[in-house]
C-alpha cells in the first residue's frame, strides 16, 4: 500500500465489498494515527456499522476518512454520507435495540458509544451524514 497522507480519502459505498473496504481504510488511518489496538478496533467497528447503514438504509453513498488534529492531539475522523430517505425519528433510531429492518438495532447507538465524538445530520427526503471522531489518547 502506498504511504498515505493524512488528507481526506473517499470511498464509494454501493455493495457489501465496499463495507469491507471502508473498514480496511479506517483501520489504516487508525494505525497511522497510532491509536491503541482497542481504540482501533472500536473505530473500525463503528465504521462498519455506519457504512452498512449507509448501504442498507441510505441506499448507498460514500465514506470520507481523514487524519485530524486539534493542536494538542491527533485523531481520525470518518463520515458517512447518503442521499437516502433520512431518519424521521432520531430518538427511536438511537434507542438500543430498535431496528426498522431485521438488525439488532445496536448500530447507531453502539457506534456512538464506541467513539469520542458522534454527529448525526439527517433530513427526511434529503439524506443522512454521520460523522465520528476517535482521538489518540
Amino acid at each position: 500500500m502506498p504511504p498515505r497522507s493524512g488528507g481526506p480519502e473517499e470511498l464509494r459505498i454501493s455493495g457489501d465489498d465496499d463495507v469491507v473496504r471502508v473498514r480496511q481504510l479506517v483501520r489504516t488511518y487508525a494505525q497511522q494515527t497510532k491509536l491503541s489496538l482497542v481504540d482501533q478496533t472500536k473505530l473500525v467497528t463503528a465504521a462498519s456499522e455506519l457504512a452498512r447503514n449507509t448501504l442498507i438504509y441510505g441506499g448507498g453513498g460514500f465514506a470520507r476518512v481523514e487524519e485530524i488534529s486539534d493542536g494538542r492531539r491527533s485523531g481520525v475522523r470518518a463520515s458517512f454520507h447518503d442521499e437516502g430517505p433520512g431518519i424521521p425519528d432520531l430518538t427511536l433510531a438511537l434507542a438500543d435495540g430498535w431496528s426498522s429492518g431485521s438488525g439488532l438495532g445496536l448500530g447507531l447507538s453502539g457506534a456512538r458509544r464506541l467513539v469520542d465524538e458522534f454527529d448525526l445530520d439527517t433530513e427526511v427526503g434529503r439524506g443522512t451524514v454521520v460523522t465520528v471522531v476517535k482521538w489518540k489518547r
Binding site: V38, K42, T45, D96, G97, L106, R113, L114
Partner: peptide
Amino acid sequence: RPQIAQTIVALGI
C-alpha cells in the same frame, strides 16, 4: 480477544 470483548460490550451486544 480483549479489544473485541470491549467492543462487543460497548456495542451493547
